[in-house]
Nucleic acid binder design. Structure first.
Lengths: 223, 223
DNA sequence: TCATAATGTGACCGCCTGGTCATATTATGG
DNA sequence: CCATAATATGACCAGGCGGTCACATTATGA
């Protein structure tokens, strides 16, 4: 989640920032709708009102454009999560989970196309450097929650009869699935998360975290 | 989940059953690997060693072939779940969840390509009659667990402070995610489910269900 | 002002796609 | 055996793709 996946050509960097942004946003929308393989460069340049030759002056090929879009996505995610968690002081394990969930919702609200690109990468074959891309995002989650769970375990905040890595799996599954349900109405298990008001959404999140607390905290701890 | 999505042409029905099966299996594999849009009929007929004209004597078009494959998938799932649950007597709510999880694993083991087709349908746009296809599978899960949860609630087997529909969401999310992780190694949250031995897999499932029990049962109930 | 460098353009290429159809092959039954 | 119906075939079509390149346009700075 550190170094860049690809370098655009110098010509692209010389562009006005607004134009750069509009290109990345338009490309992201196309990749989000169609996935990598079906996404059409002809479509992208048509929507941008530039010629195909220009696009090839900015990026070496379709793959480089796609990787640059993904670079933007990971950068944005990182910023969102960091901002939301560090902003709200020292929470306990489940408090952090709640914050991450809220950050995810906020991210999807402001950049729905980026999250769709991520989902496409997860479930599509033949995405260039797919393993690497997925690893970047998954590792971010695992490496983030892993140490947190270990610490919580040492502090007696988690049941000792469940291995820490299983706690992480459950947390990861729940968070990811909740976000998938928010972005992809079919997966919300009948909760109708998609059009929900912010208040009710927060209620859903709180009660979801509460269930995790009950299930994963030692029984001799209050809520 | 009842009526057929599409009728193959008569010519297809006149074929020897083994040939019919080999056609459906080969098509399923192609759709699983490539998704609907990218799947190539040229590829399918080449692998089958038949001409493209023949394929069009069996099905009206690509869409009809795809829908027929999906029909087979839903039929198989139904059989697997029914068989595994009815076979093992009267379990409690969480016991049934465990049985369904085991049935899902068994299904993926024997028909990995069908499950991949389902995942592709979930995350791909422009799949013909996509809403309908997803609804068939999701409704199967919701309509199955919904009444079960209601009954469990009435019998005092579930915490009263969590609405039944939220219990269903959590269960549905956990099961679906576990199966996704089994079929798609990136999503296993570091549990390495993919290559796991049957015994260890059963352990994982048992402890997962145990966590659900603890989190969702009233605190005054033993395990 | 003008030579040079940087950037923009879209017709064009080879390739692959889903789908068609005239024709060849095989099965059927009188 | 032969006429007819059923089935199999693959060359062919229009359309879209990623990518190229000779050329037009614009920016630069001496």
């Amino acid at each position: 989640m550190d170094t860049q996946l690809v370098q655009p050509k110098q010509t692209f960097m010389n562009l006005a920032p607004e134009k750069r942004e509009s290109i990345v946003r338009t490309a992201a929308a196309e990749f989000a709708e169609q996935g990598y393989q079906r996404a059409s460069l002809n479509n992208i340049v048509k929507q941008l009102g530039i010629s195909k030759g220009s696009l090839y002056q900015y990026f070496d090929n379709k793959e480089a454009l796609f990787l640059h879009v993904f670079d933007h996505f990971t950068l944005q995610v990182k910023q969102y999560v960091k901002a939301s968690v560090t902003g709200n002081g020292r929470d306990d394990f489940f408090g952090v989970a709640r914050q991450v969930l809220l950050a995810g919702i906020a991210f999807i609200d402001t950049h729905p196309e980026y999250f769709q690109v991520y989902l496409k990468v997860l479930f599509e074959r033949d995405v260039p450097r797919r393993e690497e891309l997925v690893a970047r995002v998954r590792l971010f989650s695992l490496e983030y929650f892993g140490p947190l769970a270990d610490r919580a375990m040492l502090q007696g905040m988690l049941r000792r009869d469940i291995p820490a890595r299983k706690v992480v799996f459950i947390l990861d599954a729940m968070l990811d699935r909740f976000l998938q349900g928010y972005a992809q109405p079919h997966l919300d298990g009948g909760l109708a998360l998609a059009g929900m008001s912010a208040d009710r959404l927060h209620d859903e999140i709180d009660s979801m975290v509460a269930v995790l607390r009950t299930g994963l905290q030692p029984s001799d701890m209050g809520e």
